[in-house]
């Protein structure tokens, strides 16, 4: 399992650097929108006693930790894919970064756009289930469409890409958001841009570092 340890080392470094980049982008772009949206929320009695990180370094520290760890997890997926296909170098890495962005951000966001706090949504578990289904279908769909040569698998892949959106994401019967729509729209645009940078950085860095590793 020496190869596994190398993949972990490369992915950890990639994830931490990618997470740092994303955290800096978020700090200046999307965090102000989240804080603004929270001004419209009144804390409900049941939540008011829950622990939550204090605004400032504590809150930002947890976000940095979250981004670094998810970066590590995503980089492991990119690393494993490139390892299996004997690929390295930043160009291949960019391709896998783009695929990750489509699978884990773009496809789920088409049905369930990134939301500001205070937005009424359908029941959490049904949204999580749709999110997982969409990511899995998009990953398999892209694989069939791009990485296979048989016509049947390519058509199957295209169908899988479309399937979650034909099924449709769960939405509440009456949509209601506390924050103004303009703020929400701004949030969707900025998270889309930030996550694109994050994923492309993860891919390019994975590819670059993997070319330094001898498997």
């Amino acid at each position: 399992m020496a190869d596994f340890r190398k993949l972990v080392a490369v992915s950890l470094l990639t994830g931490l650097l990618g997470g740092l980049l994303l955290s800096v982008l978020q700090h200046y772009q999307t965090l102000p929108l989240i804080l603004a949206a929270e001004q419209f929320e009144t804390p409900s009695a049941e939540h008011v006693h829950d622990w939550q990180p204090m605004d400032g370094w504590q809150r930002n520290g947890f976000t940095l930790l979250f981004n670094g760890l998810t970066g590590f997890g995503f980089a492991l997926l990119i690393g494993a894919a490139m390892y299996w296909r004997d690929q390295h170098g930043y160009l291949h890495g960019l391709g896998w970064g783009l695929a990750g962005y489509l699978v884990f951000f773009v496809a789920p966001s088409l049905g369930l756009p990134p939301e500001l706090p205070g937005t009424d949504s359908a029941e959490l578990h049904s949204r999580q289930a749709w999110w997982l289904f969409t990511a899995a279908a998009t990953a398999m769909g892209l694989f069939g469409l791009v990485l296979t040569k048989q016509r049947g698998l390519q058509i199957g892949g295209a169908c899988l890409l479309a399937l979650p959106h034909l099924v449709g994401a769960p939405h509440p019967e009456v949509a209601h958001a506390l924050a103004p729509e303009e703020l929400q729209h701004h949030f969707v645009v900025l998270t889309s841009i930030n996550n694109a940078f994050f994923w492309l950085a993860l891919g390019a860095l994975s590819g670059r570092l993997l070319s330094k590793v001898k498997f």
């Binding site: 994303l22 978020q26 999307t30 965090l31 989240i34 939540h47 829950d50 622990w51 939550q52 990180p53 809150r59 947890f62 976000t63 930790l65 979250f66 981004n67 998810t70 884990f104 951000f105 789920p108 966001s109 369930l112 756009p113 990134p114 939301e115 500001l116 706090p117 949504s121 959490l124 949204r127 999580q128 999110w131 998270t191 930030n194 996550n195």
Partner: peptide, 21 residues
């Protein structure tokens, strides 16, 4: 149950388009 994990990961989840709340 105590929402510790949710609250710590809150901003990250919202910004990464994970379903939250």
């Amino acid at each position: 149950a105590n929402n510790y994990l949710h609250n710590a990961a809150h901003d990250g989840r919202h910004s990464a388009a994970f379903p939250c709340h």
